[in-house]
Simulated scan of single mutants.
Amino acid sequence: MSAPEPGRRMTVRVDEQMPADLAVILKAGGTTSDAVRLAVAFLAHGYRDIWARGRYPDGVAPAYMRMVTPPYKGPEQRV
């Protein structure tokens, strides 16, 4: 399977969890397309990193990945 060419439209089947997941992402701003592009870029970066470091063979996806988030350093927010 090959990736679509830039500028082409892509369709994604929406499963039962996706609307709730997108709602969480969209709270930070942006569009549904922005969220999908960010998610694809985030996952691709993770795959490239583990393959480049030799942690997994090239082309093998890990069962799960984790993210390390730096502390928030902006103005205090009320919850």
Score class of each variant (00 low, 15 high):
R66V: 06
R8K: 13
M18L: 15
K73A: 14
R13A: 08
S33H: 00
G7Q: 01
I25F: 11
S2I: 11
T31F: 02
T32F: 02
E5F: 01
T11I: 04
R37N: 12
G30M: 06
D49H: 13
R37W: 03
A20S: 10
M1Y: 04
F42T: 11
P19L: 04
W51K: 04
R78M: 09
M65P: 03
D34F: 11
P62K: 04
V24H: 04
P4I: 08
R9Q: 05
L43M: 09
Y72F: 11
S33V: 14
G74Y: 01
R13W: 01
A3Q: 10
V60S: 08
W51Y: 10
E76F: 08
T31H: 01
P70A: 13
H45V: 01
R66D: 12
R48P: 09
P71C: 08
Y56E: 12
A61K: 07
I50E: 06
R53Q: 15
D15R: 05
M18P: 05
M65F: 15
D49R: 14
A63G: 15
H45W: 01
G7D: 02
T11S: 05
F42Q: 06
E76P: 03
R55T: 14
A63W: 06
V60H: 06
T11R: 03
P19D: 04
D58R: 00
G46R: 04
A61M: 09
P57T: 13
A20P: 02
G7F: 02
A35R: 07
F42C: 04
E16S: 12
L38D: 02
R53C: 14
L43T: 08
K73I: 09
V12P: 02
F42K: 06
Q17D: 09
V60W: 06
A23Y: 08
Q77P: 01
H45Q: 13
M1I: 10
A28Y: 11
R53A: 15
K73L: 10
M10G: 10
V14F: 08
A3H: 06
A20G: 10
R8T: 14
V79M: 05
K73R: 09
P57I: 06
V36I: 15
A28F: 13
H45A: 07
D15G: 13
R55C: 11
D49K: 15
L38N: 06
G59K: 00
A63R: 12
D15Q: 07
V12N: 02
P75H: 01
R8E: 14
R53K: 15
S33P: 00
G54D: 14
P70V: 05
T31S: 10
Y47E: 11
A20V: 14
P57Y: 07
V24R: 01
V79C: 07
R53V: 14
P6R: 01
A63C: 11
M67S: 03
E76N: 10
G59V: 10
P4T: 06
P71M: 11
G29Q: 03
G46Q: 03
P75C: 00
R8L: 09
D15S: 12
M67P: 00
R55Q: 15
